[in-house]
Amino acid sequence: MNKNLVRILTYIKMSLFFMVLGSIVVYIAGAPIASYVIAQGNMIIDKGAPGYPGDSNLDLSEPIVKANGTLDQSEFQIPELDTQYGTITCDRIALTAPLYYGDGEYVLQNGAGQYSLSGMPGEGKPILIGGHDTTYFAPLESIAAGDMVSITADYGNFEYEVVGTNIADVSDTTAYDLTQDKEQLILYTCYPFGAVTGDRSNRFFVYCNRISDTTEAAE
């Protein structure tokens, strides 16, 4: 075989070999970094929008929360999974995140996600909301008891007061109680904050009680 042709084929073969090996290493080692970068990028794009927050087709013109702060169940509809239905904010720590129904990876890359088997704001049941510690829920690192957390939903506004925080293992089911009879907002995120690699088995929980009125949902 022509020596030059052999050399060309060797170049192609060896380059392909290193491409394949390199791709495997980049995929394994780079996946958490890429995921972090994509989540940060989504957050910048979201928060960088003109008029953010608010441009999410939310219509606050006809809230269906009654005067005593409970949901008017006859008008209320559970949102579709993975759709944004509100915004969660805490002014003191500059927390602002779109609030989605559902907590899959797509949702968490674009905002905060509500566990679909927990209650809705105004329903009088515990609400479990998660977010990434490196993006939308990064400000939770500075949260403290007494801070006010607001949920602006497309059916009304709800205020909560932080009463405590806790760090627990991800498998610790005693860290929160979704069967309790009061409307407690439970925010959670990965702990320690900002770590991309390493031990990510802990979660940081923030417990907030609904303030002002009773939270019994109308029958």
Binding site: I44, I45, G48, P50
Partner: peptide, 11 residues
């Protein structure tokens, strides 16, 4: 709010 491109601030 129309002319404030917050995206650039974050970048």
């Amino acid at each position: 709010s129309s002319i404030q491109l917050q995206f650039v601030n974050y970048i």
